[in-house]
Structures are given as structure tokens and as C-alpha cells.
Simulated scan of single mutants.
Amino acid sequence: MVSEWVTKPLGDLIALQRGHDLPAQNRVNGSIPIMGSSGITGYHNEAKTSGPGVVIGRSGNSMGEVNFSAEDYWPLNTCLYITDFKDNDPLYIYYFLQTIDFDQFNSGSAQKSLNRNAVYPYEVYTTEDKAEQRRIGRALADLDDKIQLNRQTNQTLENMAQALFKSWFVDFDPVIDNVLAAGNTIPEPLQKRAEQRQALRASDEAPTPLPEAIRQLFPASFVFDAEMGWIPEGWEVQQIGKVIENVGGGTPRTKEDAFWVDGTHAFCTPKDMSLLTSKALLGTERHLTDAGVAKISSGQLPEGTVLMSSRAPIGYLAVN
């Protein structure tokens, strides 16, 4: 019911305490999670507090990051941990705290710092209905589980795609198979790979043969290239710049509100790419206005563009 939702100080919901030191030399290999400012940082053989528990990053770039432990754990001194949920549901509190911008409580100068006493007076809008808290917490946890499962599925599919690409275009397995089937000569540097393919095809784990239409796309012989060595017949060596069109991005002035405020056009940065759990870029942290897009020489790139970060962190790849 709406009447169960009230405004009250955050300190009425939880009690916080600074975590405890545990130098690396004092850690003993075990199964107890060690919770730091950004989550699990290792394992120990002793717990400092009981789970389920919630920790909040206390300092540095991870200040305000909220993490959950379903089991007993050791909270490090880089975080604050909840010592008393005051009869509130731990899962609900975990998700509830993620809605709070803890940067507003930063008391540090050179480095961010979070003081629990600054957090307690903060007024929040929350439900006092414990059954409703449990329903909310469980529903959000179920969604998190589904998201994690989807990420694992995406990673599995990506690994399969990378393995297939390596098999076809690095190890030349379909070409080797065609050469063997045609009885043609295998170049000496590729004979070991050919023996492995023959053994695999004769084993109980033999891969499913390629569809005939795909198999015929690959030749049945190799030719020698002075620069690259043995390559499939009909293939050629080119500079990558002659195969793809490469354009650089740009960043409009970040202090110019007309380029950023209420922007709707996705603006990709190396940070966006470094946080991906797959190669698919589905969203970005910041967005440009029409005026901002006009300031970038490459213009707005179409869906399906391959992206590569050229500044730190360098080398991340994605498809938008």
C-alpha cells in the first residue's frame, strides 16, 4: 500500500561500520569471500561477519559502489559494511542503496572518501512493508540472474564464433579438409595440422561436416606467398587499409552544454568498450546533441560499424 511508503533518514534503515584490515601476508587460502570497495577481491579461511551482507565502497574510484554477499565474508577497510539491517530485507537494501548517488557525500580532496556519519541523515523514500521489501528484492535478484545468464550465453556464443573464425581463416581447416578429400599435396609446414584434422575426423568427437555450399567456398589446394607463407589458393595478401575504410572519431568540447545536455545520439568512448561483457555495444554512458554530432568530422556512424579504441585503454573492439 502507498501508506507503507515513508520518508526517513537512511540511518533509520541501516547501521554501517568501516571494514577491517587484512594484509595479503595474513590471508590464508580458503572459501570465505574478501569484500573490498568493488566487490570480491580474494578469499580467506575466516569470516569477520555473517551474511547475507552489503558493502559500500569507501574510498577511491569505487567509492559508493554497492556489492552483496549471500554468505559470511570479510569486509576490508576499503569499504563500509552493514552491521544492522534493522529488520529490513538485505536484498531490498542492496538494490535500494544502488539508487543513491554517494558522490554527494564525498569528503575527500585528492581521493574520494565516504564517511558513514554523512550518510545517516540523508532522507530517503522507502517502504516499511517487509513483505513488499522481500518481493522487490527477490524480483530484482531474479532479473539479475537472468542478465547474468544472458551474459554467460553471449560469452559462450562469442567464444564459439572466435573458435570458428580461427579454424576457418587462421588454421585453414576447411581448406585442409578439401585438400585431403581431393588427395592433393599438403605443404610440409601444414602436415602436422593435417594429421590432427585426420585424427579428429576419425574420432568419436568428429565435427559435423560443413554444408556442401559452404565447403565449396574454400579451395582444395595451397599456394606459397613470399610474405605470408602457405595460403589457400585464390586468396591474396593486401594491406588492411586497402580492405577496410578507417576513420577517426572526435570529442566535442565537454564543457559546452549545447553539445551534451539532453543529447540523444550515443557517444562511444574507450571506457564504454572496456566495460562490455560481449562485443555488442548496445548503449553508451554519454549522448550528444545534434550540434555535438556536427562537431565530429566522421559524422554519425551507422549501425553495424566495427569500433576499435585508439586511446587508453587501447585495442578494445566492438560492433555498435
Score class of each variant (00 low, 15 high):
Thr7Glu: 13
Lys8Gly: 01
Pro9Ser: 08
Leu16Phe: 13
Arg18His: 08
Pro23Thr: 11
Arg27Met: 08
Val28Cys: 06
Asn29Arg: 13
Gly30His: 12
Ser31Ile: 15
Ile34Trp: 00
Ser37Phe: 02
Gly39Arg: 04
Ser50Gln: 11
Val54Lys: 00
Val66Gln: 07
Phe68Gly: 02
Cys79Tyr: 01
Leu91Trp: 02
Tyr95His: 09
Gln98Pro: 08
Ile100His: 00
Phe102Met: 08
Ser109Pro: 01
Ser109Leu: 08
Ala118Thr: 13
Thr126Asp: 07
Glu128Cys: 14
Ile136His: 00
Asp145Val: 10
Gln152Ser: 11
Thr153Met: 09
Thr153Val: 14
Asn154Tyr: 12
Leu157Gln: 04
Met160Cys: 12
Ala163Pro: 01
Phe165His: 05
Phe172Glu: 03
Asp173Ile: 15
Gly183Asp: 12
Gly183Pro: 14
Asn184Gln: 13
Gln191Leu: 14
Ala199Glu: 15
Ala202Val: 10
Pro209Met: 14
Ile214Gly: 01
Phe218Cys: 10
Ala220Gln: 14
Phe222Asn: 06
Met228Glu: 12
Met228Trp: 11
Gly229Asn: 06
Ile240Phe: 01
Gly249Val: 09
Gly249Asn: 07
Asp257Gly: 05
Ala258His: 09
Phe259Cys: 07
Trp260Arg: 05
Val261Gly: 00
His265Leu: 15
Ala266Phe: 08
Cys268Asn: 07
Thr269Gln: 05
Thr269Asp: 03
Asp272Trp: 07
Met273Asp: 05
Leu275Glu: 11
Leu275Tyr: 01
Leu282Glu: 13
Glu285Ile: 15
Thr289Met: 07
Asp290Ala: 11
Asp290Arg: 02
Ser297Gln: 06
Leu301Cys: 08
Val306Asn: 03
Pro313Lys: 09
Gly315Lys: 12
Gly315Pro: 14
Ala318Met: 11
Asn320Ala: 12
